[in-house]
């Protein structure tokens, strides 16, 4: 087990290392990047080349006069030290911006993904149990419908109706402007109020696919011999529903949870733009618009790390909840 743990941990570090290298490559090699623009702009302002180089180095962790290898080394070292450079558009250290943003994004993504799965498991199991009934048909229809709505379409509709037209919920921000940023009841209430629409957009649109998956899994498990044997053994319906059907139907979805987490993390770029919710995605969007490469790559790196860590946790816990996955071969957890 510890051997596996070590191997799996090494893989996480290696993945992060590779992604950091990738961001370096993007910043350094992207054609027509902000460096050029900035350099031209500064030169026009009459700054001398040395100053320009120093300035740029500050933004990028990259010294233009060094060799590629030296640039790479110093970039990686500063990333490892938590220095992601300075945002060009916001003129602030990227790390500071992200430190503000990360908790909000994690909050929205985790809450919405967990809610999505909780509802999907519940509804999917109910659909399977009453398979073929009116209830099943209706809910299957609703699930299909919800699956065909992109989350941003729902987000736009929600913000249009509930935000602007009826003004029942806020249309932007993480908390009300008047609320002090400290752990207090008004702060928490305001944070929840502001998160309702973003979370609902993800949860409602993602639920359909997952509920249908749960329904399919449950139907399959309901047809398994061991469920039939369990009935003959006289087990209570509730025990069969939870320990037999529920557990064996949910397990295959566990891996989907991971993929979904990643998908939702990426999706925050669109979601947080619509709700003006200053999380990771919001700043990534800003960076994309302003061609602010340091901020862009910093956000990208952080999103990736969040995803990799999520995968790591899912992987390790999966081998705990599914006895068939021995700790060694849990590659299948994906």
């Amino acid at each position: 087990m510890s051997h596996y743990l070590a191997k799996r941990t090494a893989r996480v570090l290696f993945t992060v290392y590779l992604v950091a290298t990738f961001t370096f490559g993007m910043i350094r090699l992207l054609p027509g990047g902000p460096l050029t623009t900035l350099r031209v702009k500064l030169a026009r302002q009459g700054m001398d080349p040395d100053q320009i180089n120093a300035y740029i180095e500050n933004y990028q962790n990259i010294r233009p006069d060094a060799t590629l290898l030296e640039q790479y080394q110093s970039y990686m070292l500063s990333v490892a030290g938590g220095d992601l450079g300075r945002s060009i558009s916001l003129d602030e250290p990227v790390t500071n911006i992200l430190a503000e943003a990360v908790p909000w994004t994690v909050f929205v993504v985790v809450v919405s993904t967990v809610l999505m799965f909780a509802f999907a498991v519940l509804f999917g199991a109910m659909m399977a149990y009453w398979e073929g009934s009116r209830f099943d048909q209706a809910l299957t229809g609703v699930s299909i419908l919800s699956a065909s709505v992109p989350f941003y379409v729902l987000a736009l509709l929600l913000v249009y109706f509930l935000g602007y037209q009826y003004q029942v919920l806020p249309t932007g921000g993480t908390t009300g402007l008047a609320v002090e940023k400290e752990l207090s009841v008004p702060f928490v209430m305001s944070a929840l109020e502001h998160a309702i629409l973003p979370v609902a957009s993800f949860t409602i649109t993602g639920m359909g696919v997952q509920a249908l998956a749960m329904r399919g899994n449950s139907i399959q498990v309901l047809g398994e011999d061991y469920v039939r044997v369990a009935r003959l053994r006289g087990l209570a319906d509730r025990r069969i529903a939870t320990r037999y059907v529920g557990r064996n139907a949910i397990l295959p979805m566990y891996t989907g949870f991971l993929l979904l987490l990643g998908f939702n993390l990426g999706g925050t770029i669109i979601l947080e733009r619509i709700f003006s919710y200053p999380g990771l995605g919001f700043y990534m969007f800003k960076a994309l618009k302003a061609r602010d490469y340091p901020l862009m790559m910093g956000t990208f790196l952080v999103i990736t790390v969040a995803l990799v860590v999520g995968a790591y946790v899912a992987d390790l816990t999966y081998s705990k909840v599914d006895p068939r996955i021995s700790s060694g071969g849990s590659n299948e957890a994906y």
């Binding site: 398994e224 011999d225 061991y226 320990r243 064996n248 397990l251």
Partner: peptide, 11 residues
């Protein structure tokens, strides 16, 4: 039943 493997709850 036939097939003992499928008669036990795998988890």
């Amino acid at each position: 039943f036939q097939g003992a493997m499928s008669s036990f709850n795998p988890t």
